[in-house]
């Protein structure tokens, strides 16, 4: 069992937890993820490692409730436990294995969308800890969905740029608008962009950075089961190769990823997921008629 030491609701439908998992904490690096399973009947849910404390042996995860399993997970409190918590999975971010001196010469910009801010956080923290400054653009639908602002501000200071789609906080517009502005109007030059967020957002960042000529890394989150390269559910078309996101990724060259295919594949279990959500919401009061459950 993996004990939850802290559980907080940090924004609308977004939750943060510190979980005791010493083996994971002692070996993980930015860019990697874990798979959690709540109980005997639970799904295996992949979540990016948002932060880690090697000394305390804890991992921080941040997740958004989007379906039945994440809704159930949101009900867990400090003191509760995950039955299973496996990791670190996937490969560390490229930066971790790069030559530090070479890396110091590079100008890096992050574009984070929504909960994508969580996986961006450990990378920014890692860079600053190694004396490398970078710019961080955080975008969200509205003010209530901005997360980790204080934590990022404490590290990146004025290099943090926040934007909201509806203009309810700081400025109105998408992450791509900020990036365009920084490059076109404020004379910024970047050698690398790292974009993490919803598929559609990463797709548009990549279209822009292709135009701007900035090599771009994205973190992919396809449907996963085992996370060890055994099932192939997580396969992606990257250039002319098929890659398994869980072992070859999750980070890939964004200019080579087939986002349209990835978006279609994410819909694979839509019907079953919808049914699971209905079952969770209606509980015993659901007596057929939804057209999905077979009880109608």
């Amino acid at each position: 069992m993996y004990k939850i030491l802290k559980a907080e609701n940090i924004a609308d439908k977004i939750y943060l937890m510190d979980v005791e998992a010493p083996r994971v904490a002692s070996h993980c690096e930015p860019g990697q993820f874990v798979i959690v399973k709540m109980d005997e009947k639970g799904e295996r849910i992949p979540l990016t490692i948002c932060d880690y404390d090697r000394e305390k042996g804890t991992i921080t995860i941040v997740f958004q409730t989007v379906g039945a399993s994440t809704e159930k997970m949101a009900k867990l409190k400090a003191g509760d436990s995950f039955q299973d918590f496996v990791g670190p999975l996937g490969r560390p971010s490229e930066m971790v294995e790069e030559d530090l001196e070479e890396l110091k010469k590079k100008k890096i910009v992050f574009v984070a969308g929504g909960v994508g801010t969580a996986p961006v956080f450990p990378q920014v923290k890692w860079l600053y800890a190694h004396g490398i400054e970078c710019d961080v653009i955080v975008g969200a639908k509205n003010k209530d969905l901005i997360i980790l602002e204080d934590e990022l501000r404490a590290i990146a200071g004025d290099n943090l740029y926040i934007t909201t789609d509806d203009g309810s906080y700081v400025r109105k517009g998408m992450g791509t608008d900020v990036l365009k502005d920084l490059v076109n109007n404020q004379g910024k030059k970047y050698d690398r962009c790292i974009a993490i967020g919803p598929l559609i957002m990463m797709k548009f960042v990549c279209l822009l950075t292709k135009e701007l000529g900035i090599p771009t890394i994205v973190s992919m989150n396809p449907i996963m089961v085992d996370g060890t390269g055994m099932c192939g559910a997580c396969r992606l078309q990257v250039g002319d190769e098929i890659k398994f996101a869980c072992v070859d990724g999750p980070e890939f060259d964004g200019h080579l990823v087939d986002f349209d295919q990835a978006m279609k594949r994410q819909q694979t279990y839509k019907t079953e997921e919808g049914r699971a959500m209905l079952k969770l919401q209606e509980g015993d009061t659901h007596h057929g008629g939804c057209g999905n459950c077979g009880n109608d």
Partner: peptide
């Protein structure tokens, strides 16, 4: 699907049983 994915969902994750959360179509 790979047979591994299909079988893992059904066997390891017991998706054939509606009481379990993992989906199988």
């Amino acid at each position: 699907f790979s047979a591994n994915e299909y079988l893992t969902r059904s066997n390891l994750m017991k998706a054939f049983d509606d009481e379990y959360d993992t989906p199988i179509a």
